[in-house]
Every structure is written in structure tokens, then in C-alpha cells.
Amino acid sequence: MEIYREFASVYDLMQYDIDYPLWINQLDSIAKKHMTNPRSILELACGTGTISVGLSQKGYLCEALDISEDMLTIAQSKAYDCGAKIKFYHQDMANFSTKKKYDMVCCMCDGMNYQHDIDTLSKVMQQINLHLNEEGVVVFDLSSKYKLKEIIGNNTFAETFESEAYIWENEYDETLNLLNFSLTIFKDEGNGYERYEEFHTQRAYEIEDVLTVINPFFEVLDIVDGDSFKQKHEQSQRICFILKKKTEVQITEAK
């Protein structure tokens, strides 16, 4: 999608405050805690591939997908530089299909917030279920409603780096629970700075709403603070869901 083209080039710079080593170690621990000899992992909305590369370096057979070709280009380069053998798919997580099954499916750092309605979120859960081995584990996070409404909503952020800068303007729609934001990116192209603009929308979900789409497919193992992986609280800015596939669920693949 065009909205991710220039975002891809500054994505890692904007994520500097995320503790990726902690996330990677926690995903590894969750997989080993709830499965015997977990081997394969699929990451949805993988972005620039930091998590998939980290899990691959821990010995997992990793595959990953993203809707943005530009994100995947960076992810492939990152995997190559690290010697990580990862297969990447250019697919939308709302209707993805790799025709394989995995021990774990994960989606970190707001991928689910880009699913703007309950029906689409339910389709994602159905596709995850189809791609999960028996008793497989699912881990995904959401930026919380508290974060999107109170921290980000109706605020503007700006930051400069060595050869890039951005202005991030946000507007929160309380009726629809949607965060609409414009991202203006300035990049040094060698003969001066070029200006690019993208528009994004994220949905804020209540935990209870997410549970309604989880329940047909998965057992909830835990719901934790998605930044620390400790107990969630009212001001948690990220909520992480840890789930296990229900063995009795029989779902046919969506057309």
C-alpha cells in the first residue's frame, strides 16, 4: 500500500523506544512454556523484520508477511545481513494464506489496530486458526484505547534525525474509536530535503470486544501489559494477548 512507502524508511527510527530484545525473548519463552519443542513461527505485519530476524537467530524456522513491499524490502535486507533464512510474503493479514501451518503466529506493534472493524479482526483470527498447528500458540498486541485516545489522540509530535525528520499529527474520533493521523516525512535526498505525506488510521478496541472474536477459535492463556509483559493496568499503553488454539474448532478456509 502507498501509505507505507515513505513510512518504511523512517519506521526503525521511530521505534527506537521499543525494547525489541525483550519482546523477542518473551516470544521465545512463551513458545517454550506452552509447547513441546516449538519450531515454526509466522509473523503477521512484520514491518522491517526485526522480530522475525531475532527469532530466527534463536533457532526458529520463521516466515513473515506484510502489506508493504517497502517494509519487506528492508526486512529482506536485514535478514540477509544477519544470515537469517526467512521467507517473506507480500500479503494483507486480513486474508493471508501461506498454505502452511505453524507452531506460533505472532503480530506485534499495532498490526491489529490497523484492522478497522470487528468483522475484519474476526477474519484475521479465522486465518490465524487455519495456519496454526494443533495446540499452537498466538501472541499479538494492540495499542490500548488509553494510548490512542489519551496519549496520542489530538496531539502532534515531531522529531529530527541525521538525514530524516517527521511531523506526526493526530486526531481521535471518539464516536468511531478511530485514530486518524497524518505523517509528514522530510528526507535528505542528496540535493536537499524532499517532503512526503502519508495518512493512517488505527482502531482502538476494548478488551471485551477483542475477546468476542478470540473466543470461537482460541483459549486465553494470559492478557498482559504489552511493553513489559507484566500485569496489565489501566494506563497500559499496549495490551498483549497470549492464546492457545482450541482443538475442537473446525473452520473452513474463507473464500
Rank of each mutant, 00 (worst) to 15 (best):
M1L: 08
R5S: 14
E6Q: 09
V10W: 06
D12C: 11
D12G: 14
Y16C: 09
Y20V: 08
Y20T: 08
W23T: 03
L27H: 02
S29M: 13
I30N: 01
I30A: 01
M35G: 06
M35K: 05
R39H: 07
S40C: 08
L42V: 03
G47F: 03
T48C: 03
T50A: 14
S52V: 10
S56V: 01
G59R: 05
C62Y: 03
T73A: 14
T73P: 00
I74W: 01
A75T: 13
A79C: 07
Y80F: 13
C82T: 09
K85P: 13
I86Y: 07
F88I: 09
D92N: 10
M93P: 00
K100N: 15
Y102F: 12
C106E: 00
C109F: 05
M112V: 13
Y114F: 09
H116G: 15
H116M: 15
D117S: 11
D117H: 13
D119F: 13
S122A: 12
S122H: 07
V124Q: 02
Q127T: 15
N129R: 09
G136C: 11
V137G: 04
V139H: 02
D141W: 09
L142Q: 00
S143V: 09
S143Q: 06
S143H: 08
E150H: 10
I152W: 12
G153Y: 11
G153T: 02
N154K: 04
N154L: 15
N155V: 05
F157I: 03
F157V: 13
A158V: 06
E159T: 14
E162R: 06
S163L: 12
E164I: 09
A165M: 15
A165S: 12
Y166S: 05
W168M: 01
E174Y: 14
N177T: 12
L178Q: 10
I185F: 01
F186V: 00
F186Y: 12
F186I: 09
E189R: 10
E189S: 14
E189D: 14
Y193N: 14
E194D: 15
E194A: 15
E198V: 00
E198Q: 10
H200D: 10
H200G: 03
T201H: 03
T201P: 03
Q202H: 04
I207W: 04
D209C: 15
V210N: 12
L211T: 03
I214V: 15
P216R: 11
P216F: 03
V220Y: 04
L221G: 08
V224I: 05
G226R: 02
G226E: 00
F229L: 06
E234G: 09
S236C: 12
R238C: 08
C240K: 06
F241I: 10
V249Y: 11
